[in-house]
Simulated assay, not measured.
Amino acid sequence: MQLVETHAHIYLDQFKEDIDEVIESARAKGVEKIYLPNIDSRSIDAMLELEYRYPGYCIPMMGLHPCSVNKDFEKELYVVEEWINRRDFVAIGEMGTDLFWDKSFYEEQKEAFRIQSRWAIEKNIPIVIHCRESIDETIDLVSQLNSDKFRGIFHCFTGTSDQAKQIIDMGFLLGIGGVATFKNGGMEPVLEAIPLDHLVLETDSPYLTPAPHRGKRNQPAYLELVAQKIATVKNMTINEVAEATSANAYRIFN
């Protein structure tokens, strides 16, 4: 079984003491690649250090997380722009909108979204979208930026089947993570309705740990629990889920 982890923040301090063991555990569970979304200027060095230590295995993105957008967001975007013009990245991310933690900079979040989306279109690379409590608003933002080069992943998708269909119709994939395993996560109807060729797997480590490990630090080795949940819901083998979602991940990240 070969799994692709499309979203993990394993460069954060939560992994500082045992990152080698975390990587070893992931490999042992069949995780053959880990994609690293950036947060802001403070996370870049640690993320790129992990790329250096595990070349070809830990793959970085570059972007500005919406929770790091404030009145000085242009300065942060300048750092992102400087990096994407300096070297290649597989995606612009993690970017998007967030109306859960703080609504006071929502207009700035939308502007940062548009700017980073235009960069992705210019570079012909995907975007990786965070949209907590803001799926409909983010679907609207994406729909305004129509381009045959515009593509990406709605990370940590927890929406409805109708929202999933809108996202798929725009050419985007759905990132499915630990919430799918939660007893009251509500994801089973969506997983039943959406074909595998529109899904990719993620953990969002160290967050959103899948059952039965809820309450503990998440890690890429737990990706198989997400794959197994999808396999159970769709009455497939875990190998079928792994093969399809990994192919989707490699296709979106080129």
Rank of each mutant, 00 (worst) to 15 (best):
N146L: 13
K75C: 00
V200R: 04
E82I: 07
A193Q: 01
S143Q: 13
E133T: 10
Q14S: 13
I167D: 02
F157S: 07
S41A: 15
A211Q: 13
V69A: 10
M61E: 06
F15V: 08
V4N: 02
I176L: 04
Q116G: 10
Y54Q: 08
L173V: 06
F253N: 00
I153K: 01
T209G: 00
G185T: 12
E51A: 12
M187A: 07
A211I: 13
R86A: 12
S104Y: 03
I230S: 01
N235V: 01
I230M: 05
D197P: 02
V142E: 02
K103G: 02
S134L: 08
I135P: 06
D162H: 12
N239S: 15
N70C: 10
A91M: 11
I23V: 14
K110F: 03
M187G: 00
G171V: 06
P60N: 03
W83M: 14
D20W: 00
D102K: 10
Y52H: 13
F15H: 08
V233Y: 05
D197A: 06
F105L: 00
L173N: 04
L3K: 04
T181F: 09
E81T: 01
G185W: 13
T138A: 03
F15G: 06
G215T: 09
E76Y: 07
N146Y: 14
I59Q: 04
I84L: 10
G63T: 03
T209D: 05
L64A: 08
D140R: 15
G152S: 01
L145N: 10
H130E: 04
E133W: 11
P66T: 14
P37W: 04
A180D: 05
M187W: 11
E74W: 09
E224D: 11
E49L: 12
I121E: 06
V80K: 00
D98A: 01
S161W: 09
E76G: 04
G185C: 12
G159W: 00
P60A: 09
A231V: 05
V69W: 09
